[in-house]
């Protein structure tokens, strides 16, 4: 089968240059440490890498949110704990005051302390977090939750909206508890039927009862303070449980992120040992092609014509 001379040369050159191309590609991969030099090398793999990158960024974004959530929860917890302590104190005072052995003057002294504690409550209720948002206002974070009018009546200015944060693709956690849920009201049965009495109104009524030396109302105050104290403890427990959930979510996120990172590395990064082996194989075949070409191209009948 006749092979023309040009064929011999052309074919050999073509094979050598394609081999050189492969060697250059391997070299580039080794230099960058990545399996893909450009996306068009393997579009499907590139798509996978992009998806994984997005997933990793999402996890980071959720972690950031968890950080913000934790700050918020810590602020809530701190003020609720102080509030709990204050309520504890008020309960003690209530028990003390309900004791028949106290005189009216004693009770008035107690009333003074209750009034001071009440002021502390108001400032605790109007806590702000690190970003300057009111913690207990629901979604009205720039409005103080409790404000006092001229008669000293405190009304709740916030709303009942619960703000949720995305902490994972499927999960949202509540960031806050609205003020009226924390500083709850009690139902007081009066002659006019059941009536709703606000948190601060309970304390105000109690201090009024102390000043008036009204034993029935002092007992009533004791019971009501007990109710609101229970509710506050519930809120505190709720904050605590939310913090636990946030922590476990954080662990979960860290795990997920580690998994994604590993997957990404698998897909994206070059396996050096196989790459180097491949490179030596390519180099070998290039050398073989070159030396065989030199040998074969020298064979010609004209060499033997004098």
């Amino acid at each position: 089968m006749k092979v023309s001379t040009t064929q011999v040369f052309d074919r050999a050159i073509a094979q050598m240059s394609s081999q050189q191309g492969k060697v250059a590609e391997m070299q580039a991969k080794l230099a960058t440490g990545k399996q893909l030099i450009k996306p068009s090398d393997n579009p499907e793999q590139n798509g996978l890498i992009q998806r994984l990158n997005s997933a990793v960024e999402r996890q980071e974004s959720y972690e950031k949110n968890l950080g913000t959530l934790n700050n918020r929860l810590v602020a809530e917890e701190v003020s609720l704990r102080s509030a709990e302590n204050i309520l504890q104190r008020i309960r003690e005072l209530a028990v003390q005051a309900a004791n028949g052995s106290l005189t009216a003057a004693d009770r008035e002294i107690v009333a003074v302390e209750v009034k001071t504690l009440r002021e502390e409550f108001v400032s605790l209720a109007n806590t702000k977090d690190v970003s300057g948002n009111y913690v207990f206002s629901g979604s009205k974070v720039k409005t103080p939750p409790f404000s006092e009018n001229e008669e000293g009546v405190l009304t709740y200015q916030g709303d009942s909206n619960v703000i949720s944060l995305s902490v994972s693709e499927q999960r949202q956690l509540a960031m806050n508890k609205p003020g009226n849920d924390v500083f709850t009201s009690v139902v007081r049965s009066t002659d006019a039927g059941p009536q709703k009495v606000g948190f601060f109104a309970v304390i105000d009524d109690f201090s009024a009862a102390l000043e008036d030396n009204d034993v029935t109302n002092i007992h009533r105050g004791l019971a009501e303070v007990g109710h609101i104290s229970e509710a506050l403890s519930l809120s505190l427990a709720d904050v605590g449980s939310r913090m636990t959930v946030a922590e476990s979510q954080g662990d979960l996120l860290a795990d997920t992120k580690a998994r994604y990172d590993a997957l990404l590395s698998d897909t994206q990064d070059l396996d050096y040992s196989t790459a180097v082996t491949k490179l030596s194989a390519e180099l070998l075949s290039l050398e073989a092609a070159q030396s065989s070409f030199v040998k074969i191209s020298q064979l010609s009948l004209f060499n033997y014509l004098r």
């Binding site: 990158n53 960024e57 974004s61 949110n65 948002n133 995305s166």
Partner: peptide, 18 residues
Amino acid sequence: AFDRFFAAANSLSADPAS
């Protein structure tokens, strides 16, 4: 670009008043 956009939306949702 999508990832950045949604990450910014996520941060915004954590503190919309800021």
